[in-house]
Nucleic acid binder design. Structure first.
Lengths: 180, 180
DNA sequence: ATATATAATGTTACATTATAACATTACATT
DNA sequence: AATGTAATGTTATAATGTAACATTATATAT
């Protein structure tokens, strides 16, 4: 099994590359896995759980799968609805616990600006990310760029603040919606 | 009336400077107004409202005042409690509308990471800010630094994303809590 | 294999955050 | 004073999230 990283290498075009190749440089934009890549993504999560001695249960797999297949980040209650549609009706704590697990494993991110969850483009490693949230269509891109976090770290250091988690959420218009 | 900008020029020390002097360079950290500066802050907001032909009503003034006087960012329901304590009992829509107004005028910021509101260190001008939220004591600093936003803009531009609002919220430990 | 401990999930109830919709009051302008 | 608009009051409810405890599934040791 090879780690898989979904990247968009040019406008709209997506390419699956191996983890070793993915250096998170400033020149690629990492995005949510496309529908066809979901299976790879779930397999990868599965392998990471084995490696980390974590249990990738049916519930967790289902929640992650639903998030992956969504075009947009999903809220907890939207997930509950989708689970009901899929024949598994659950109460809020169930989905919140699954989401907590998936976040701890780095498989999903939570967007504080709109209370939603989306699949992480790079489950292999811990990282910070920048999210570009289109206020029109809701589509959200995950960018990786050292520059922003280095700037944050540097500023925090000046006031002796110990950074644990930096969340950068950018609301605006995506390329597609700008054109339309 | 002179625009007033609250800055911390060294560890813990605060100084009130005139707006013209405040260039938001990377070397100063802008913080919430201290208790003694609240009156100046409210006066400043009042003047800005006059200039902008906006109504700085009692309600809005009271909400802003409570936020200013708080050591920490306040949630909407904490504000409601404080208003009740002050003899004005209000329902949620009342305080949310006041908060909307204060945000529109740039007098307060909302922190999405913990659903709270805090006074803006620079009500004079529209700006983006970085918030350092101490997860222990809740104290929150507002930093201004072009570097981070330039980095965000630059990365967004590469994917043709039009930035409207960038929120940077950093959770960690403040200098004080690290020492203790 | 069975007992035991632990982790995960189910379930109920409720806490917290936020808004819709409509009534009333205050204010600005004529 | 009449009128229109903005602000606030009020009621009800939506949306988001969690505490507490019961049950089920899994891992580990015996």
């Amino acid at each position: 099994m090879v780690d898989v990283c979904m990247v968009s290498v040019a406008k709209g075009r997506q390419q699956k590359i191996e983890h070793d190749e993915c250096r998170h440089s400033g020149d690629i934009s990492c995005v949510q896995p496309s529908y066809k890549q979901v299976e790879d993504f779930l397999l990868q999560a599965d392998n990471l759980c084995i490696k980390r001695k974590q249990r990738f249960t049916d519930l967790r797999k289902q929640v992650l799968s639903l998030i992956c297949r969504s075009e947009q980040p999903l809220g907890a209650y939207a997930l509950l609805d989708l689970m009901k549609d899929a024949g598994r009706s659950a109460a809020p704590p169930t989905v919140y616990r699954a989401l907590d697990f998936l976040q701890e494993q780095g498989f999903v991110h939570r967007l504080a600006s709109n209370n939603t969850y989306l699949a992480c483009a790079h489950p292999q490693q811990q990282h910070e990310a920048v999210f570009l949230v289109c206020k029109q269509c809701g589509a959200t891109q995950e960018l990786h760029t050292d520059g922003i976090y280095k700037a944050v770290e540097s500023r925090a250091k000046k006031v002796s603040f110990k950074v644990e988690h930096a969340s950068v959420e950018v609301v605006g218009l995506c390329a597609h919606c700008r054109a339309a």
